[in-house]
Amino acid sequence: MWAVDLAAAQQFHAREGHLRVPRKHVEHLAGTAKGTADPSGHQAGADGPVMIKLGTWLDNVHKRADRLSAERRAELDHLRMRW
């Protein structure tokens, strides 16, 4: 599940140049077959992309920052996550 959510964060960062995601933002992650669920349980929409509640996920990650592994924290630091 982390990999899919991180991919959505990376996609947002590549497009916007930052990781200041509004709390209600949903990222449409391309690359998933139409009408299927990915391993994390996220459902593909009618057009095929997976819908990731990126703002919610990042807010939750921010709140759990002290419990993240060094590797996961480094992945978000690479995207210039604001802690």
Rank of each mutant, 00 (worst) to 15 (best):
M1L: 09
M1Y: 10
A3L: 08
V4C: 15
D5Q: 15
A7D: 10
A9V: 07
A9L: 03
Q10A: 01
Q10E: 11
Q11S: 00
Q11A: 03
F12T: 14
H13F: 13
A14S: 14
A14K: 13
A14C: 11
H18R: 11
H18P: 06
H18Y: 15
R20N: 07
V21P: 05
P22Y: 00
R23C: 08
L29T: 03
A33I: 07
G35M: 13
T36Y: 04
D38M: 04
D38Y: 02
P39C: 03
P39W: 02
G41H: 09
G41Y: 10
G45I: 02
A46Y: 01
D47Y: 02
D47Q: 11
P49L: 02
I52E: 11
L54Y: 03
G55I: 05
G55T: 06
T56F: 03
T56S: 00
T56N: 04
W57G: 02
W57C: 02
L58I: 14
D59E: 15
N60A: 14
V61P: 05
V61E: 03
R64L: 12
R64P: 06
R64S: 09
A65R: 15
D66M: 12
D66N: 15
E71D: 14
E71H: 12
R72T: 00
R72Y: 01
A74V: 02
D77H: 09
H78D: 10
M81A: 14
W83L: 11
W83P: 07
